[in-house]
Design a protein around this nucleic acid. Structure first.
Lengths: 278, 278
DNA sequence: TATACTAATGACTAATTGGTCAGTTGTCAA
DNA sequence: TTGACAACTGACCAATTAGTCATTAGTATA
């Protein structure tokens, strides 16, 4: 499946340069050095490609961020770690970041629009959870404004390396944003965003049992030569259809599949599914 | 020329919905209820339309902001007024704002890209001049970071009404941003953006004498029934070709043409031209 | 060497694109 | 009523688009 990755990389380059609509499948295949037919061997349509790209990068960054948040013990480091990962990822995957920034505003179809909204909501939810912990002393009614503050700094400073190719010290940048946000958290008094916006953020994708099973099916097709992950997936799928295993066993199985890059997102959704059952 | 305006309005709607590349001239003419030929009566090409749109709105907002800055006496109100105008304009012209946000990242050709860069530089220059005056007590090495801070708040909170259709009190929003920026200005210590970025901001369009003359020519074709403006323009043009008038007279003539919407941008550039001559 | 299979090709289609232009319509003054 | 002129139309064009499919190339097994 190395050619699929090639298509994703090269198309991302072109999308970042000219945008999705302005890039033709012809251009993509030319840059990849493959035929047009080959493209449709790996993607059913141009739309499937855009969905794959967004899902691939967003699920990867969101799982990474969630892991970091739950792994960080010290409250003071929460925001720093978040910024370091997010901005670092933007810097490394600048093509995706550019592409994402346009898609965020402009979505070519309803399906894509809702997808983007969901990912942004998840992103904001992570920021909110960080604010809750790191700025616990701040009055809770200011939390949402702090989320917007953090978001603003990320957006604004991102442009430095995305558009202007400005070289900067990532660590210093993160420290400076933490300093500024802390100042705002400790002293700001005027609330703009009200609590009802929380409902907007909390719209996490509620995967149904069947959707989860189908997701596991598609992953199973892609995975080779990793019997641990394969068997774990099989057990997890079986338990969805006919619950038999205890919670402890399920948690362990999820840890198993999390080691595989392709399964991280699935593990994340499975966890959310278990939480919703409670 | 009311049909030209109709095309601009309707196309902006479509661009905001689907993006520039995804919108066909066919769609535009259909929404306007005119024929395809009529479109090309008013715009030489689709590219000319996009340029017209961006120029029209950006020149209008930038001249408005410059006027507000130079008219504001009280230092404490500078940032507030800037935010109130910018965000108010974004709210009112939400179609343009959306369209602009995507074009900013993604420019379909080099010409457009440089155009956008120039406008953004001018925008940042205005913010910088506000920071210099309103936050004079802040160490100057922090000025650029304050510019990025302000930009971040504008970007972040803009999304509330651009994407999420969230209703809010504009005046309250501006006050809250001023509060936050003031906190940062008074206490932040970590500098990220260094002085060399200033060169980037200061790239104002240096219009040559000939470009200015041509600009006046195109404006003269559009203007009817306003002899004061027409004669002022004629004198200003003549003085470019053969300087005879005193500075005081020129300043007065510029005031004359500023009253006309179509001339504001030209007056702005003429002033810059005179400044550069010194 | 023969067979069976997948990976890959590129000419092809139907639809759509930006842009043109010969011709029609509407509106004036003479 | 006529003629002149600008505003406007929509069939038309060449180029390009996303997507298809009969065909071929390559490779592994028997």
């Amino acid at each position: 499946m190395v050619k699929k990755q090639l298509i994703m990389e090269k198309s991302l380059e072109l999308f970042a340069e000219n945008g999705f609509e302005a890039t033709s499948v012809q251009q993509i295949t030319e840059r990849c050095g493959i035929s047009k037919g080959a493209f449709y061997l790996y993607f059913k349509s141009k739309d499937e490609l855009i969905n794959s790209l967004i899902d691939h990068f967003m699920t990867s960054i969101i799982t990474e961020l969630e892991q970091s948040v739950s792994a960080t013990q010290s409250r003071e480091e929460l925001l720093y770690n978040f910024l370091y990962i997010s901005l670092g990822e933007f810097q490394q995957q600048s093509n995706f970041a550019k592409f994402f920034m346009t898609e965020q505003v402009l979505s070519y179809n309803k399906d894509l629009f809702e997808r983007m909204q969901t990912y942004m909501a998840m992103f904001n939810r992570i920021i909110y959870s960080i604010v809750e912990r790191q700025f616990a002393q701040t009055p809770p009614n200011m939390y949402l404004d702090l989320v917007f503050t953090i978001n603003g700094f990320v957006k604004s400073y991102s442009e430095l390396f995305l558009l202007d190719n400005y070289k900067l010290d990532l660590s210093l940048l993160c420290k400076s944003i933490v300093e500024k946000v802390t100042l705002v958290a400790q002293n700001a008094t005027i609330q703009v965003v009200t609590a009802d916006y929380l409902a907007y953020i909390n719209q996490i994708p509620k995967y149904t049992k069947d959707q989860l099973i189908e997701l596991i099916n598609t992953i199973q097709e892609e995975i080779r030569d990793d019997s641990l992950v394969e068997e774990s997936l099989q057990l997890l799928k079986a338990d969805l259809q006919e619950p038999t295993l205890s919670r402890v066993v399920l948690v362990g199985l999820l840890k198993n599949i999390k080691e595989n890059e392709n399964c991280k997102w699935c593990a994340y959704l499975y966890e959310k599914f278990l939480q919703n059952e409670d």
